[in-house]
Design a protein around this nucleic acid. Structure first.
Lengths: 251, 251
DNA sequence: CGGTTCCTTGACGCATATCAATCTGTGTGG
DNA sequence: CCACACAGATTGATATGCGTCAAGGAACCG
Protein backbone atom coordinates (compact mmCIF):
# COMPACT_ATOMS: atom_id res chain seq x y z
CA UNK A 1 0.00 0.00 0.00
CA UNK A 2 1.43 3.33 -1.05
CA UNK A 3 0.90 6.03 1.52
CA UNK A 4 2.23 8.75 -0.73
CA UNK A 5 -0.67 8.06 -3.07
CA UNK A 6 -3.41 8.07 -0.53
CA UNK A 7 -2.29 11.28 1.10
CA UNK A 8 -0.90 12.86 -2.04
CA UNK A 9 -2.47 16.24 -1.59
CA UNK A 10 -2.50 16.32 2.17
CA UNK A 11 -0.07 16.64 4.99
CA UNK A 12 1.23 13.33 6.22
CA UNK A 13 -0.85 12.15 9.17
CA UNK A 14 0.71 12.55 12.59
CA UNK A 15 0.45 8.79 13.00
CA UNK A 16 3.22 8.26 10.42
CA UNK A 17 5.34 11.21 11.49
CA UNK A 18 9.08 10.59 11.20
CA UNK A 19 8.58 6.93 10.41
CA UNK A 20 10.79 5.25 7.82
CA UNK A 21 9.01 4.13 4.68
CA UNK A 22 9.87 0.58 5.67
CA UNK A 23 8.26 1.04 9.09
CA UNK A 24 5.10 2.39 7.52
CA UNK A 25 4.95 -0.64 5.29
CA UNK A 26 5.28 -2.89 8.34
CA UNK A 27 2.46 -1.02 9.96
CA UNK A 28 0.16 -1.22 6.96
CA UNK A 29 0.83 -4.86 6.18
CA UNK A 30 -2.63 -6.02 7.14
CA UNK A 31 -4.54 -2.78 6.80
CA UNK A 32 -7.55 -2.17 4.60
CA UNK A 33 -9.16 0.91 3.06
CA UNK A 34 -12.91 1.06 3.20
CA UNK A 35 -15.72 3.42 2.18
CA UNK A 36 -18.76 4.19 4.29
CA UNK A 37 -22.03 6.04 3.84
CA UNK A 38 -23.35 8.71 6.17
CA UNK A 39 -24.28 7.65 9.68
CA UNK A 40 -22.44 4.34 9.73
CA UNK A 41 -21.62 3.25 13.26
CA UNK A 42 -18.06 1.92 13.34
CA UNK A 43 -17.72 1.30 17.06
CA UNK A 44 -20.24 1.12 19.86
CA UNK A 45 -19.86 1.65 23.59
CA UNK A 46 -18.82 -1.67 25.05
CA UNK A 47 -17.20 -3.01 21.89
CA UNK A 48 -13.63 -4.22 21.93
CA UNK A 49 -12.15 -2.24 19.04
CA UNK A 50 -10.65 -4.29 16.24
CA UNK A 51 -9.06 -1.48 14.30
CA UNK A 52 -7.34 1.83 14.55
CA UNK A 53 -9.15 4.18 12.15
CA UNK A 54 -7.40 6.83 10.08
CA UNK A 55 -9.67 9.23 8.22
CA UNK A 56 -8.64 9.52 4.57
CA UNK A 57 -11.70 11.47 3.50
CA UNK A 58 -14.83 12.59 5.30
CA UNK A 59 -15.61 13.13 8.96
CA UNK A 60 -16.15 11.09 12.10
CA UNK A 61 -17.84 11.78 15.39
CA UNK A 62 -16.82 10.15 18.67
CA UNK A 63 -19.59 10.41 21.24
CA UNK A 64 -21.40 8.87 24.17
CA UNK A 65 -25.07 8.24 24.72
CA UNK A 66 -26.96 7.70 27.94
CA UNK A 67 -30.12 5.76 28.59
CA UNK A 68 -32.34 8.63 27.51
CA UNK A 69 -30.59 8.74 24.16
CA UNK A 70 -28.89 12.05 24.86
CA UNK A 71 -25.56 12.40 23.07
CA UNK A 72 -22.33 13.96 24.22
CA UNK A 73 -19.72 14.59 21.58
CA UNK A 74 -16.20 13.79 22.66
CA UNK A 75 -14.29 14.43 19.45
CA UNK A 76 -14.91 15.54 15.88
CA UNK A 77 -12.39 14.26 13.39
CA UNK A 78 -11.37 15.26 9.91
CA UNK A 79 -9.05 13.89 7.28
CA UNK A 80 -5.66 12.80 8.61
CA UNK A 81 -6.89 12.22 12.16
CA UNK A 82 -7.16 8.91 13.93
CA UNK A 83 -9.37 7.32 16.51
CA UNK A 84 -9.38 4.24 18.69
CA UNK A 85 -5.62 4.58 19.21
CA UNK A 86 -6.29 5.36 22.83
CA UNK A 87 -9.02 2.80 23.38
CA UNK A 88 -6.78 0.03 22.07
CA UNK A 89 -4.50 0.57 25.03
CA UNK A 90 -7.17 1.05 27.66
CA UNK A 91 -7.37 -2.66 28.25
CA UNK A 92 -11.15 -2.43 28.43
CA UNK A 93 -14.16 -1.95 26.23
CA UNK A 94 -14.69 1.19 24.27
CA UNK A 95 -16.26 4.00 26.29
CA UNK A 96 -17.39 5.73 23.10
CA UNK A 97 -19.33 5.30 19.87
CA UNK A 98 -17.83 6.31 16.56
CA UNK A 99 -20.00 7.24 13.61
CA UNK A 100 -19.35 8.53 10.11
CA UNK A 101 -20.68 11.96 9.16
CA UNK A 102 -21.21 12.05 5.42
CA UNK A 103 -19.42 9.83 2.94
CA UNK A 104 -16.17 8.68 4.43
CA UNK A 105 -13.08 6.76 3.40
CA UNK A 106 -11.07 5.13 6.15
CA UNK A 107 -7.80 3.32 6.58
CA UNK A 108 -8.19 0.55 9.12
CA UNK A 109 -5.16 -0.89 10.90
CA UNK A 110 -5.83 -4.06 12.89
CA UNK A 111 -5.57 -3.60 16.63
CA UNK A 112 -3.06 -6.39 17.20
CA UNK A 113 -0.74 -4.93 14.57
CA UNK A 114 -0.79 -1.61 16.37
CA UNK A 115 0.03 -3.26 19.66
CA UNK A 116 2.91 -5.27 18.29
CA UNK A 117 4.39 -2.36 16.32
CA UNK A 118 4.46 -0.24 19.46
CA UNK A 119 6.94 -2.66 20.92
CA UNK A 120 9.11 -2.87 17.82
CA UNK A 121 9.07 0.71 16.51
CA UNK A 122 9.97 3.26 19.22
CA UNK A 123 9.10 6.24 17.04
CA UNK A 124 5.64 4.79 16.49
CA UNK A 125 4.96 4.52 20.19
CA UNK A 126 6.20 8.09 20.55
CA UNK A 127 3.76 9.19 17.85
CA UNK A 128 0.93 7.42 19.62
CA UNK A 129 1.88 9.01 22.92
CA UNK A 130 1.80 12.42 21.30
CA UNK A 131 -1.51 11.84 19.57
CA UNK A 132 -3.18 10.52 22.69
CA UNK A 133 -1.81 13.25 24.92
CA UNK A 134 -3.18 15.76 22.45
CA UNK A 135 -6.63 14.22 22.76
CA UNK A 136 -6.23 14.25 26.48
CA UNK A 137 -5.31 17.91 26.39
CA UNK A 138 -8.37 18.64 24.29
CA UNK A 139 -10.61 16.85 26.72
CA UNK A 140 -9.08 18.86 29.57
CA UNK A 141 -10.08 21.98 27.71
CA UNK A 142 -13.53 20.60 27.19
CA UNK A 143 -13.96 19.90 30.89
CA UNK A 144 -12.60 23.32 31.69
CA UNK A 145 -14.93 25.01 29.26
CA UNK A 146 -18.08 23.35 30.50
CA UNK A 147 -17.34 24.24 34.07
CA UNK A 148 -16.16 27.77 34.13
CA UNK A 149 -16.84 29.24 30.75
CA UNK A 150 -19.99 30.83 29.44
CA UNK A 151 -21.34 29.72 26.05
CA UNK A 152 -19.89 32.91 24.59
CA UNK A 153 -16.44 32.06 25.90
CA UNK A 154 -16.67 28.49 24.69
CA UNK A 155 -17.66 29.52 21.19
CA UNK A 156 -15.03 32.26 21.18
CA UNK A 157 -12.33 29.85 22.23
CA UNK A 158 -13.43 27.34 19.62
CA UNK A 159 -13.29 29.98 16.90
CA UNK A 160 -9.91 31.17 18.14
CA UNK A 161 -8.38 27.72 17.94
CA UNK A 162 -9.86 27.18 14.48
CA UNK A 163 -8.48 30.54 13.45
CA UNK A 164 -5.03 29.68 14.72
CA UNK A 165 -5.14 26.27 13.05
CA UNK A 166 -5.99 27.67 9.63
CA UNK A 167 -3.35 30.39 9.91
CA UNK A 168 -0.57 28.11 11.06
CA UNK A 169 2.73 29.29 9.69
CA UNK A 170 1.20 32.19 7.78
CA UNK A 171 2.71 35.06 9.71
CA UNK A 172 1.76 37.79 7.28
CA UNK A 173 -1.15 36.74 5.17
CA UNK A 174 -3.69 36.23 7.91
CA UNK A 175 -7.05 35.52 6.40
CA UNK A 176 -9.79 37.14 8.45
CA UNK A 177 -12.18 34.31 7.78
CA UNK A 178 -12.69 30.81 9.03
CA UNK A 179 -15.14 28.20 7.79
CA UNK A 180 -16.99 25.97 10.21
CA UNK A 181 -15.89 22.43 9.38
CA UNK A 182 -19.06 20.81 10.77
CA UNK A 183 -22.78 21.36 10.91
CA UNK A 184 -23.74 23.91 13.53
CA UNK A 185 -25.74 21.49 15.62
CA UNK A 186 -22.76 19.14 15.71
CA UNK A 187 -20.45 21.89 16.88
CA UNK A 188 -23.04 23.02 19.42
CA UNK A 189 -23.19 19.57 20.94
CA UNK A 190 -19.41 19.33 20.96
CA UNK A 191 -19.32 22.59 22.89
CA UNK A 192 -21.87 21.27 25.35
CA UNK A 193 -24.83 23.43 24.43
CA UNK A 194 -28.03 23.20 22.43
CA UNK A 195 -28.23 24.41 18.80
CA UNK A 196 -30.54 27.18 20.02
CA UNK A 197 -28.02 28.48 22.50
CA UNK A 198 -25.29 28.21 19.89
CA UNK A 199 -27.33 30.26 17.46
CA UNK A 200 -28.06 32.92 20.05
CA UNK A 201 -24.42 33.01 21.01
CA UNK A 202 -23.38 33.64 17.42
CA UNK A 203 -25.48 36.77 17.42
CA UNK A 204 -23.78 37.97 20.56
CA UNK A 205 -20.46 37.65 18.83
CA UNK A 206 -21.37 40.34 16.33
CA UNK A 207 -20.97 42.90 19.07
CA UNK A 208 -17.42 41.68 19.45
CA UNK A 209 -16.49 42.14 15.81
CA UNK A 210 -17.24 38.63 14.58
CA UNK A 211 -19.79 38.28 11.79
CA UNK A 212 -21.39 34.98 10.91
CA UNK A 213 -22.79 34.26 7.46
CA UNK A 214 -23.85 30.68 7.13
CA UNK A 215 -20.77 28.63 7.88
CA UNK A 216 -18.38 31.51 7.21
CA UNK A 217 -17.01 33.36 10.22
CA UNK A 218 -15.63 36.77 9.33
CA UNK A 219 -13.51 38.79 11.71
CA UNK A 220 -13.89 42.53 11.40
CA UNK A 221 -10.43 42.98 12.86
CA UNK A 222 -7.48 40.64 13.31
CA UNK A 223 -7.57 40.80 17.10
CA UNK A 224 -11.30 40.22 17.47
CA UNK A 225 -10.85 36.83 19.09
CA UNK A 226 -7.99 37.78 21.41
CA UNK A 227 -10.41 38.21 24.31
CA UNK A 228 -10.78 34.47 24.36
CA UNK A 229 -7.08 33.63 24.38
CA UNK A 230 -5.38 31.62 27.08
CA UNK A 231 -1.88 30.31 27.54
CA UNK A 232 -2.51 27.22 25.48
CA UNK A 233 -3.92 29.16 22.56
CA UNK A 234 -1.19 31.78 22.82
CA UNK A 235 1.41 29.11 22.19
CA UNK A 236 -0.18 28.35 18.83
CA UNK A 237 -0.33 32.01 17.89
CA UNK A 238 1.98 32.82 14.99
CA UNK A 239 2.14 36.57 15.53
CA UNK A 240 5.70 37.57 16.10
CA UNK A 241 4.56 40.56 18.11
CA UNK A 242 1.96 39.02 20.32
CA UNK A 243 1.51 41.95 22.65
CA UNK A 244 -0.15 43.89 19.85
CA UNK A 245 -3.40 42.25 20.72
CA UNK A 246 -3.25 43.81 24.14
CA UNK A 247 -4.52 40.83 26.09
CA UNK A 248 -2.04 38.06 25.32
CA UNK A 249 -1.40 36.00 28.47
CA UNK A 250 2.22 35.65 27.41
CA UNK A 251 2.82 39.37 27.86
CA UNK B 1 17.21 3.63 45.08
CA UNK B 2 15.25 0.66 46.35
CA UNK B 3 11.68 0.66 45.15
CA UNK B 4 10.72 -2.31 47.26
CA UNK B 5 11.41 -0.20 50.33
CA UNK B 6 9.49 2.84 49.32
CA UNK B 7 6.40 0.91 48.32
CA UNK B 8 6.85 -1.87 50.85
CA UNK B 9 3.30 -1.93 52.08
CA UNK B 10 1.58 -0.86 48.89
CA UNK B 11 0.82 -2.27 45.52
CA UNK B 12 3.50 -1.59 42.99
CA UNK B 13 2.64 1.52 40.99
CA UNK B 14 1.32 0.97 37.50
CA UNK B 15 4.27 2.97 36.22
CA UNK B 16 6.66 0.13 37.11
CA UNK B 17 4.36 -2.70 36.10
CA UNK B 18 6.15 -5.67 34.56
CA UNK B 19 9.46 -3.85 34.46
CA UNK B 20 12.66 -5.67 35.28
CA UNK B 21 14.40 -4.54 38.42
CA UNK B 22 17.28 -3.41 36.22
CA UNK B 23 14.93 -1.30 34.09
CA UNK B 24 13.49 0.34 37.17
CA UNK B 25 16.99 1.19 38.30
CA UNK B 26 17.69 2.76 34.93
CA UNK B 27 14.54 4.77 35.25
CA UNK B 28 15.28 5.98 38.75
CA UNK B 29 18.93 6.83 38.14
CA UNK B 30 18.45 10.56 38.46
CA UNK B 31 15.24 10.62 40.47
CA UNK B 32 14.75 12.28 43.84
CA UNK B 33 12.29 11.86 46.69
CA UNK B 34 10.96 15.04 48.20
CA UNK B 35 8.53 16.11 50.94
CA UNK B 36 6.06 18.96 50.62
CA UNK B 37 3.68 20.78 52.91
CA UNK B 38 0.02 21.37 52.21
CA UNK B 39 -0.86 23.61 49.29
CA UNK B 40 2.50 23.54 47.55
CA UNK B 41 2.17 24.30 43.86
CA UNK B 42 4.34 21.87 41.91
CA UNK B 43 3.41 22.89 38.38
CA UNK B 44 1.61 25.90 36.99
CA UNK B 45 -0.33 26.39 33.78
CA UNK B 46 2.19 27.37 31.15
CA UNK B 47 5.17 25.71 32.80
CA UNK B 48 7.26 23.22 30.92
CA UNK B 49 7.26 20.28 33.32
CA UNK B 50 10.67 19.13 34.53
CA UNK B 51 9.57 15.98 36.30
CA UNK B 52 7.16 13.12 36.27
CA UNK B 53 5.63 12.94 39.77
CA UNK B 54 4.78 9.71 41.54
CA UNK B 55 2.84 10.06 44.78
CA UNK B 56 4.46 8.04 47.56
CA UNK B 57 2.31 9.49 50.32
CA UNK B 58 -0.38 12.15 50.41
CA UNK B 59 -2.61 13.61 47.74
CA UNK B 60 -2.36 15.83 44.70
CA UNK B 61 -4.86 17.89 42.79
CA UNK B 62 -4.56 18.67 39.07
CA UNK B 63 -6.71 21.63 38.09
CA UNK B 64 -7.19 24.65 35.90
CA UNK B 65 -7.99 28.23 36.82
CA UNK B 66 -9.48 30.96 34.70
CA UNK B 67 -9.02 34.70 34.94
CA UNK B 68 -11.68 35.04 37.62
CA UNK B 69 -9.83 32.55 39.79
CA UNK B 70 -12.45 29.84 39.38
CA UNK B 71 -10.99 26.35 39.62
CA UNK B 72 -11.85 23.21 37.67
CA UNK B 73 -10.46 19.98 39.02
CA UNK B 74 -9.17 17.63 36.36
CA UNK B 75 -7.77 14.83 38.52
CA UNK B 76 -7.39 13.87 42.15
CA UNK B 77 -4.47 11.59 42.89
CA UNK B 78 -3.55 9.32 45.72
CA UNK B 79 -0.57 7.22 46.62
CA UNK B 80 0.84 5.17 43.72
CA UNK B 81 -0.54 7.46 41.04
CA UNK B 82 1.44 9.65 38.69
CA UNK B 83 1.03 12.96 36.99
CA UNK B 84 2.72 14.95 34.25
CA UNK B 85 3.36 11.75 32.29
CA UNK B 86 0.95 12.98 29.69
CA UNK B 87 2.07 16.59 29.66
CA UNK B 88 5.68 15.56 29.08
CA UNK B 89 4.65 14.18 25.70
CA UNK B 90 2.30 16.96 24.71
CA UNK B 91 5.12 18.96 23.23
CA UNK B 92 3.71 22.11 24.75
CA UNK B 93 3.34 23.84 28.06
CA UNK B 94 1.33 22.38 30.87
CA UNK B 95 -2.40 23.03 30.58
CA UNK B 96 -2.86 22.33 34.28
CA UNK B 97 -1.70 23.27 37.76
CA UNK B 98 -0.70 20.64 40.25
CA UNK B 99 -0.88 21.25 43.97
CA UNK B 100 -0.30 19.16 47.06
CA UNK B 101 -3.24 18.52 49.40
CA UNK B 102 -1.89 17.87 52.88
CA UNK B 103 1.62 16.64 53.62
CA UNK B 104 2.95 14.79 50.64
CA UNK B 105 5.97 12.72 49.69
CA UNK B 106 6.80 12.50 46.01
CA UNK B 107 9.15 10.63 43.75
CA UNK B 108 10.31 12.89 40.95
CA UNK B 109 11.70 11.44 37.73
CA UNK B 110 13.36 14.00 35.41
CA UNK B 111 11.45 14.61 32.23
CA UNK B 112 14.36 13.87 29.88
CA UNK B 113 14.95 10.50 31.57
CA UNK B 114 11.32 9.58 30.96
CA UNK B 115 11.57 10.53 27.32
CA UNK B 116 14.75 8.59 26.71
CA UNK B 117 13.56 5.49 28.58
CA UNK B 118 10.44 5.38 26.44
CA UNK B 119 12.63 4.76 23.45
CA UNK B 120 14.79 2.15 25.12
CA UNK B 121 12.29 0.21 27.27
CA UNK B 122 9.24 -0.93 25.27
CA UNK B 123 7.34 -2.12 28.33
CA UNK B 124 7.78 1.30 29.89
CA UNK B 125 6.22 3.04 26.92
CA UNK B 126 3.40 0.51 27.08
CA UNK B 127 2.87 1.35 30.75
CA UNK B 128 2.77 5.03 29.94
CA UNK B 129 0.28 4.44 27.14
CA UNK B 130 -1.95 2.53 29.52
CA UNK B 131 -1.73 5.13 32.26
CA UNK B 132 -2.45 8.00 29.91
CA UNK B 133 -5.31 6.26 28.17
CA UNK B 134 -6.82 5.63 31.59
CA UNK B 135 -6.67 9.33 32.35
CA UNK B 136 -8.20 9.99 28.99
CA UNK B 137 -10.98 7.59 29.69
CA UNK B 138 -11.63 9.28 33.00
CA UNK B 139 -11.82 12.66 31.35
CA UNK B 140 -14.29 11.26 28.81
CA UNK B 141 -16.47 10.23 31.70
CA UNK B 142 -16.11 13.65 33.22
CA UNK B 143 -17.22 15.33 30.01
CA UNK B 144 -20.07 12.90 29.70
CA UNK B 145 -21.18 13.50 33.25
CA UNK B 146 -21.24 17.26 33.01
CA UNK B 147 -23.31 17.22 29.86
CA UNK B 148 -25.99 14.66 30.29
CA UNK B 149 -26.00 13.68 33.92
CA UNK B 150 -27.73 15.31 36.81
CA UNK B 151 -25.75 16.00 39.99
CA UNK B 152 -27.42 12.96 41.52
CA UNK B 153 -26.23 10.73 38.69
CA UNK B 154 -22.72 12.15 38.86
CA UNK B 155 -22.43 11.56 42.58
CA UNK B 156 -23.96 8.13 42.23
CA UNK B 157 -21.55 7.15 39.51
CA UNK B 158 -18.64 8.46 41.55
CA UNK B 159 -19.71 6.42 44.56
CA UNK B 160 -20.24 3.37 42.39
CA UNK B 161 -16.73 3.51 40.96
CA UNK B 162 -15.26 4.04 44.43
CA UNK B 163 -17.29 1.11 45.67
CA UNK B 164 -16.05 -1.12 42.87
CA UNK B 165 -12.46 0.01 43.42
CA UNK B 166 -12.49 -0.84 47.12
CA UNK B 167 -14.15 -4.20 46.51
CA UNK B 168 -11.83 -5.27 43.73
CA UNK B 169 -11.28 -8.97 43.83
CA UNK B 170 -13.41 -9.46 46.93
CA UNK B 171 -16.23 -11.49 45.47
CA UNK B 172 -17.82 -12.53 48.72
CA UNK B 173 -16.93 -10.14 51.49
CA UNK B 174 -18.41 -7.01 50.00
CA UNK B 175 -18.20 -4.22 52.51
CA UNK B 176 -21.26 -2.04 52.33
CA UNK B 177 -19.27 1.05 53.16
CA UNK B 178 -16.95 3.36 51.34
CA UNK B 179 -14.92 6.24 52.72
CA UNK B 180 -14.59 9.48 50.80
CA UNK B 181 -10.88 9.84 50.06
CA UNK B 182 -11.01 13.64 49.77
CA UNK B 183 -12.67 16.62 51.38
CA UNK B 184 -16.24 17.07 50.22
CA UNK B 185 -15.63 20.44 48.62
CA UNK B 186 -12.77 18.92 46.63
CA UNK B 187 -14.92 16.08 45.39
CA UNK B 188 -17.74 18.51 44.61
CA UNK B 189 -15.47 20.56 42.41
CA UNK B 190 -14.15 17.45 40.72
CA UNK B 191 -17.73 16.51 39.91
CA UNK B 192 -18.39 19.95 38.50
CA UNK B 193 -20.73 21.27 41.15
CA UNK B 194 -20.64 23.55 44.18
CA UNK B 195 -20.21 22.18 47.71
CA UNK B 196 -23.79 23.30 48.40
CA UNK B 197 -25.20 21.28 45.55
CA UNK B 198 -23.06 18.32 46.57
CA UNK B 199 -24.41 18.51 50.10
CA UNK B 200 -28.00 18.67 48.92
CA UNK B 201 -27.39 15.79 46.56
CA UNK B 202 -26.10 13.61 49.39
CA UNK B 203 -29.43 14.04 51.15
CA UNK B 204 -31.26 12.94 48.03
CA UNK B 205 -29.25 9.75 48.05
CA UNK B 206 -30.80 8.67 51.33
CA UNK B 207 -34.01 7.98 49.45
CA UNK B 208 -32.04 5.57 47.29
CA UNK B 209 -30.63 3.58 50.17
CA UNK B 210 -27.35 5.40 50.60
CA UNK B 211 -26.66 6.96 53.99
CA UNK B 212 -23.93 9.51 54.53
CA UNK B 213 -22.30 10.05 57.90
CA UNK B 214 -19.39 12.42 57.65
CA UNK B 215 -17.02 10.88 55.13
CA UNK B 216 -18.48 7.40 55.49
CA UNK B 217 -20.93 6.27 52.83
CA UNK B 218 -23.08 3.35 53.94
CA UNK B 219 -25.17 1.32 51.55
CA UNK B 220 -28.36 -0.08 53.02
CA UNK B 221 -28.30 -2.82 50.41
CA UNK B 222 -25.58 -4.20 48.14
CA UNK B 223 -27.33 -3.13 44.94
CA UNK B 224 -28.12 0.40 46.03
CA UNK B 225 -25.76 1.96 43.52
CA UNK B 226 -26.66 -0.25 40.58
CA UNK B 227 -28.99 2.46 39.21
CA UNK B 228 -25.90 4.42 38.28
CA UNK B 229 -24.09 1.62 36.49
CA UNK B 230 -22.99 1.81 32.89
CA UNK B 231 -21.02 -0.49 30.64
CA UNK B 232 -17.70 0.83 31.85
CA UNK B 233 -18.56 0.38 35.49
CA UNK B 234 -20.08 -3.03 34.85
CA UNK B 235 -16.75 -4.26 33.57
CA UNK B 236 -15.19 -3.50 36.94
CA UNK B 237 -17.96 -5.24 38.80
CA UNK B 238 -16.74 -8.37 40.58
CA UNK B 239 -20.13 -10.03 41.07
CA UNK B 240 -20.12 -13.36 39.36
CA UNK B 241 -23.87 -13.10 38.93
CA UNK B 242 -24.26 -9.60 37.65
CA UNK B 243 -27.89 -9.84 36.65
CA UNK B 244 -28.87 -10.06 40.31
CA UNK B 245 -28.82 -6.29 40.46
CA UNK B 246 -31.55 -6.16 37.86
CA UNK B 247 -30.20 -3.24 35.91
CA UNK B 248 -26.75 -4.37 34.77
CA UNK B 249 -26.13 -3.15 31.21
CA UNK B 250 -24.26 -6.37 30.51
CA UNK B 251 -27.45 -8.41 30.87
C1' DC C 1 -13.38 27.47 76.07
C1' DG C 2 -12.49 30.57 71.48
C1' DG C 3 -11.04 30.17 66.84
C1' DT C 4 -10.83 28.08 62.56
C1' DT C 5 -12.23 25.21 58.92
C1' DC C 6 -15.62 22.55 56.88
C1' DC C 7 -20.25 21.37 56.03
C1' DT C 8 -25.12 22.30 55.83
C1' DT C 9 -29.42 24.81 55.10
C1' DG C 10 -32.32 28.45 53.28
C1' DA C 11 -33.89 32.13 50.02
C1' DC C 12 -33.39 34.07 45.57
C1' DG C 13 -32.23 35.06 40.65
C1' DC C 14 -30.59 34.03 36.35
C1' DA C 15 -28.97 31.40 32.51
C1' DT C 16 -29.76 27.84 29.75
C1' DA C 17 -32.73 23.88 28.33
C1' DT C 18 -37.05 22.97 26.52
C1' DC C 19 -40.91 23.40 23.59
C1' DA C 20 -42.96 25.34 19.64
C1' DA C 21 -43.20 28.10 15.56
C1' DT C 22 -41.06 30.20 11.68
C1' DC C 23 -37.57 30.96 8.30
C1' DT C 24 -33.92 29.64 5.00
C1' DG C 25 -31.76 26.99 1.74
C1' DT C 26 -31.28 22.96 -1.14
C1' DG C 27 -32.49 19.26 -3.78
C1' DT C 28 -36.30 16.74 -6.32
C1' DG C 29 -39.88 15.68 -9.34
C1' DG C 30 -43.64 16.98 -12.28
C1' DC D 1 -38.93 26.31 -14.29
C1' DC D 2 -41.66 26.25 -10.53
C1' DA D 3 -43.74 23.81 -6.51
C1' DC D 4 -42.92 20.98 -2.95
C1' DA D 5 -40.59 18.59 0.69
C1' DC D 6 -37.19 18.29 4.03
C1' DA D 7 -33.31 19.33 6.89
C1' DG D 8 -31.09 22.78 9.20
C1' DA D 9 -31.07 27.17 11.43
C1' DT D 10 -33.25 30.82 13.83
C1' DT D 11 -36.37 33.15 16.98
C1' DG D 12 -39.56 33.53 20.80
C1' DA D 13 -41.82 32.23 25.28
C1' DT D 14 -41.51 29.60 29.33
C1' DA D 15 -39.73 27.13 33.31
C1' DT D 16 -36.54 24.93 36.19
C1' DG D 17 -32.28 23.68 38.23
C1' DC D 18 -28.17 25.12 39.77
C1' DG D 19 -25.20 28.84 41.40
C1' DT D 20 -24.83 32.61 44.43
C1' DC D 21 -25.14 34.86 48.69
C1' DA D 22 -25.85 34.70 53.50
C1' DA D 23 -26.41 32.54 57.88
C1' DG D 24 -26.08 28.83 61.00
C1' DG D 25 -24.16 24.44 62.78
C1' DA D 26 -20.57 20.81 63.57
C1' DA D 27 -16.05 19.09 64.27
C1' DC D 28 -11.44 19.84 65.48
C1' DC D 29 -7.38 21.92 67.84
C1' DG D 30 -4.85 24.76 70.49
Amino acid sequence: MMMQNIFKEQAKPKLFDKLLESDIELLLQYSVVQNYEDGNILVQQGDVPKYLYLVIQGQLKAYRVNDDGAEVTIRLLQSGETCMEAVIFMGSNSPINVQTMGQTQLLMIPENIVKSRVLSIPQFSLNLLQIITKHYKNSIHQIDGMNIKSPLQRVGYYFLTKYLETNQGKQDSEKLEIVLPFKKQVIANYLGMTPETFSRTLKQMKNLGVDVEGDRIKLREAFALCHFCDIDAANLCAREDKNKCGVCPLH
